[in-house]
Write a protein that binds this DNA or RNA. Structure first.
Lengths: 303, 303
DNA sequence: GATATCTATAGGTTATACTTATAGACAGAT
DNA sequence: ATCTGTCTATAAGTATAACCTATAGATATC
C-alpha cells in the first residue's frame, strides 16, 4: 500500500470517473487503472464497482476512502509541520549561558529574537562555564554563551565580540579621582590593593587572577563570593577592588555601586563566543539565534 | 514523502543505529542512508543528528517520529480492516426478497448464515418482483430472491431450486377427500372452480393465471387480495380454490387453514433464483450468502 | 598505532510506475 | 441498426528510482 495509491483512490472516489481523475492527477488513465488494480489485488477487495458507464464505491471502498482520507490529511499535516520548522516558523533552541554574563546580555537579545521569530521557543539554562561546555558537547544545549578559551576541543564557536574588562573601585578610592582627571590605571598599579573576587570554579575568577599574574603580581584576595553582585557591593562599601566584564559594569543594579574605571593599554578583554558541538548540524532556529546574538552584541559594543 | 520512508525513519529512531535498522528492515545500510537523506532533503529539515559514533533525533525528528507513528498505525488499521472484509470477517449484504416467499424461506437461511459469518450484516428489503428486479439492476440490493422468468436482461442469476406448486382447497371440498385416497388432481379439472388469487402486479398472480391458461381454461376469479395469507384464509372458509407455492403450503400460520393437495403430472413448479446485476462483482460476503442460500433451499426441497 | 565499526558516496542492476497505442464494452445519435 | 464518442482494461516499451555491492572516510576501542 502506497500513499500514491491512497491519493489515486480518493481522486477516483471524488470524480467517479477514471479518465477525469487521471487528468486531475496529471497521469495517464491506464496508470490509474493499473495502480488501482494493484491496490485491490493487494488488499483482496474490490474498491470500485465499475464498467464503461459507471464507477461506484463498494462497501469496502467506502470504508477505505474514509480512512484513506484521514491518513492523507495526517501526512499533509506532518509535511506542513516540517515545513514550518524548516521555514523557521516554529522550532526550539536550548541556550546555555554563564549566569553573570547571560543575565546582562540575554535580556538584550531575547526581545529582538522573539519579535522576529515569534514561534521559536527558547529555553535558557544557566550554569558554570565548565558545565556549560560539557552540556553543549553532549548535545543537551544547542548553543552556549561562553568566553575563550574553551576547554573542550570538540566545541566549535563563533565570536560574538570582544568585551573590555573594567576596574571596579570604591567611590572614595584615590584611583577614582585620578580617573576623573583622565588618567587611566594600569593593572600593575593594583599590586597592593585588596582584591574581592568570585569563588574558584567560575570562569571569570580564573581570568582575574591570570590577568594579575600577567601584570606581574599575585592578587591579595581578601574576600570571595559566588555572586558577582555581592562582589560589586563589597567593593562599593570600600572593602577592596575587583575586575569586572564591561557589560556588567554598564548596568549596576544595586544601591551599593562601585566606580568603574577603564584600564590603561593594553586594555584587558575577553572574547565572548557562542559555542556548539563541532560538526553538529545547527537547526535554522539555532542559526537564526546566533545571527541575532551577534548583531545585538555588536550593537552593545558600539556604545 | 513515502510510507516506506516513514517506516525507515521509525526504525532508525528505534535502533539509533543505521546498520542495525537496515538489518531489521531487510535492506542494505546504504539504501537506508539514501532514503533518509532524500526525505530530509524533501522536508528541508534534518531528522537525525548523526556521526560515526551516535545517532540522535533532532527537535524536528522528534515531532516527525511522533506523527509518523500515528500514520503508520492508521495504515496498518486500514490494511487490517480491508483484510477483515476480504476474509469475510466483516461485511454487508443487502438482500431483496418477494414478501410472500422471503417470509417463508429467509427464516431458514438467516440463522445458518449468521452462525457462520457473525460479523456480516444482512439488510432485508421486501418488494414486488418487478421492483426487486429494478433495485437489483440498479445496484441498490446486492442480491434478490426471485423466480423465473426475469424481466430485466441485465440480471444474472443462480438457481436455488425448483418449487412445486400445490393446490389449496377448502377442507370439505370433494377434491380433498379424493386426494386422501391417493388420486391427484389435474389442473384442467379446476376449470369450473371459483378462484381466489393475488392482485395484479404480484408475480405469482401472473403465474397462476398462466398455468390455468396452459391447462386450457381461463380461471374464474371471484376474489383478489394483496396478501397471500388472506387468500388462504378465504380458501379455508370455502370461498374458492387457489394455487400456492409449496414452501408456503408447508407452514400455514393462521387458524383458517385450507387443505393443500399435490397436483398431478406434469406437476407445475417455479424456479427460485438469486439474481444479481450481470457483470457485477459480488463481494465475498454476497457469494457466501448465495452459497448458504442454495444449501438451505436444497435442504428444504428434500423434505 | 592497528583494528573494528559506523555512516556516506559511487556505480551498476533491477523493479516498477510511467508512457502511448489499442482493444473491447457500452450509450446515445443518426 | 449502425455509427460515433467515451469509458476502462490490456499490451509493450521507457524512464525513474530503489536497490545492491564495493569502498571511502571518520571515529571509537584495543
Amino acid at each position: 500500500m502506497e500513499l500514491r495509491q491512497l491519493q489515486y483512490t480518493l481522486q477516483i472516489a471524488a470524480e467517479r470517473n477514471f479518465s477525469r481523475a487521471a487528468d486531475k492527477l496529471h497521469i495517464a488513465q491506464p496508470s490509474l487503472s493499473q495502480q488501482l488494480s494493484k491496490l485491490e489485488k493487494e488488499l483482496g477487495v474490490l474498491l470500485f464497482q465499475r464498467n464503461t458507464s459507471s464507477v461506484e464505491l463498494t462497501h469496502a471502498g467506502e470504508k477505505f476512502v474514509e480512512q484513506a482520507q484521514a491518513i492523507i490529511d495526517a501526512v499533509e499535516l506532518l509535511r506542513q509541520e516540517m515545513s514550518d520548522i524548516s521555514q523557521l516558523r516554529t522550532g526550539r533552541v536550548v541556550v546555555g549561558s554563564m549566569p553573570i554574563t547571560g543575565a546582562h546580555l540575554l535580556p538584550h537579545v531575547l526581545p529582538v529574537f522573539k519579535s522576529k521569530y515569534a514561534e521559536v521557543e527558547i529555553t535558557l539554562l544557566e550554569d558554570s562555564s565548565m558545565n556549560l561546555e560539557k552540556l553543549t558537547a553532549s548535545g543537551q544545549t544547542d548553543l552556549s554563551l561562553l568566553s575563550l578559551p574553551l576547554e573542550i576541543p570538540t566545541l566549535a564557536y563563533e565570536v560574538l565580540g570582544e568585551e573590555r574588562i573594567d576596574l571596579a573601585v570604591p567611590p572614595e578610592h584615590p584611583l577614582a579621582a585620578r580617573s576623573a582627571q583622565g588618567i587611566r590605571t594600569s593593572l600593575h598599579e593594583l599590586k597592593n590593593e585588596p582584591f574581592i573576587v568570585l569563588k574558584e570554579g567560575q570562569g571569570f575568577r580564573k581570568m582575574t587572577v591570570e590577568l594579575c599574574r600577567e601584570a606581574g603580581f599575585e592578587p591579595q584576595i581578601v574576600f570571595e563570593s559566588n555572586n558577582m553582585e555581592t562582589v560589586q557591593s563589597l567593593v562599593a562599601t570600600g572593602m577592596g577592588v575587583t575586575l569586572v566584564p564591561h557589560f556588567i559594569a554598564r548596568a549596576p543594579r544595586s544601591e551599593f555601586v562601585p566606580v568603574y574605571l577603564p584600564l590603561a593599554d593594553p586594555v584587558p578583554s575577553r572574547t565572548l563566543v557562542v559555542a556548539y558541538r563541532r560538526g553538529r548540524y545547527l537547526s535554522r532556529a539555532a542559526e537564526a539565534f546566533i545571527e541575532t546574538f551577534k548583531a545585538t552584541v555588536a550593537g552593545l559594543a558600539d556604545e
